[in-house]
């Protein structure tokens, strides 16, 4: 197997040294992930063995069977937490991709009054994290009567500024000729957007998906969700972890599920995501 691309200006010893460095750090990066995978397949006695063991000796699916079993007999079945997380993630991410694309298209392709200011504000919004707005956000939510509903998590996620920024940068590369041709044929702006722009930015959809999905998938509902039957999977995991020993196996199984879905999505979409990110730069 070939490890390196042949390139100019490369000396072999340094290449090998750099690769060793990369491999060591890679190992460090992978430790918790490998551990989480191993844990999920450990039988109960191995989870609590002393001294603790990193790798599983006798892998078993018991934890997953237990997970299915607890699903039925707890007050709020675990399937309900799964369902809540699915709903929030699917609607939040889907809405985000559609709304961000709709807003990105005019900003990328046309100049009109306000377009520059709006984009500057979006860039400014990239510069602070949602923590800054947490408190007034709560007031806005309660004003809208959205506290303790799915909406409190789904709707704000739709206007994630990073998504708009990346989508706009990507759309700028669409050839103007293509849009003009459609316009000459008499297509309306909405039609152009839906039939021509959207199908041509599929790689960018995946990028927005990869950036937004893990945030919603991993949400605990924070301060917005109080009812037990609306809580999310990650919240359930926290409860299981806090409950300690009795459900440690189930906890490890849930942790693995929570962790692997975003990673698998990324593995599947990697090449498209990188294609989009190459246009992510900020120009002067």
């Amino acid at each position: 197997m070939r490890f390196f691309n042949k390139q100019l200006n490369r000396s072999m010893p340094i290449t090998i040294l750099l690769f060793l460095f990369l491999a060591m750090v890679g190992l460090f990066m992978a430790i918790p992930l490998v551990y989480a995978i191993n844990n999920a397949f450990k039988p109960l006695d191995e989870l609590f063995i002393f001294p603790p063991r990193f790798f599983v000796r006798n892998p078993t699916l018991d934890n997953f069977y237990d997970l299915v079993a607890v699903m039925g007999d707890s007050w709020v079945p675990i399937s309900r937490y799964f369902f809540n997380t699915f709903i929030i993630t699917i609607f939040g991410t889907g809405g985000h991709i559609i709304f961000a694309s709709m807003a990105a298209y005019p900003l990328a392709k046309y100049k009109f009054p306000g377009s520059k200011v709006i984009f500057q504000i979006v860039i400014l919004a990239l510069m602070f994290s949602p923590h800054v707005t947490a408190i007034p956000n709560y007031l806005v939510m309660s004003g809208l009567g959205w506290i303790d509903t799915y909406l409190s998590l789904i709707i704000p996620a739709m206007a994630f500024p990073l998504g708009l920024f990346l989508m706009k940068q990507f759309m700028e590369q669409l050839p103007d000729a293509m849009l003009e041709a459609a316009k000459i044929d008499g297509a309306s702006e909405f039609r152009i957007f839906w039939k021509i722009v959207m199908p041509n930015v599929k790689p960018a959809w995946l990028t927005l998906l990869i950036l937004q999905f893990p945030i919603l998938w991993g949400t605990t509902g924070g301060n917005f969700i109080y009812s037990e039957e609306l809580k999310t999977l990650n919240y359930a995991l926290e409860q299981i972890t806090e409950a300690g020993i009795a459900r440690a196996g189930v906890g490890a199984a849930v942790a693995l599920i929570l962790m692997s879905v975003p990673i698998i999505l990324f593995i599947l979409s990697q090449s498209k995501v990188i294609e989009t990110m190459s246009s992510s730069g900020m120009k002067d």
Binding site: A103, L107, A125, A159, P161, L164
Partner: peptide, 20 residues
């Protein structure tokens, strides 16, 4: 038409980023 396309995103953005 462009304002209309931007409207849904901007309303949410305004409510949950600018207003806060």
């Amino acid at each position: 038409h462009y304002y209309l396309l931007m409207l849904p995103f901007m309303i949410i953005f305004f409510l949950f980023t600018i207003v806060p």
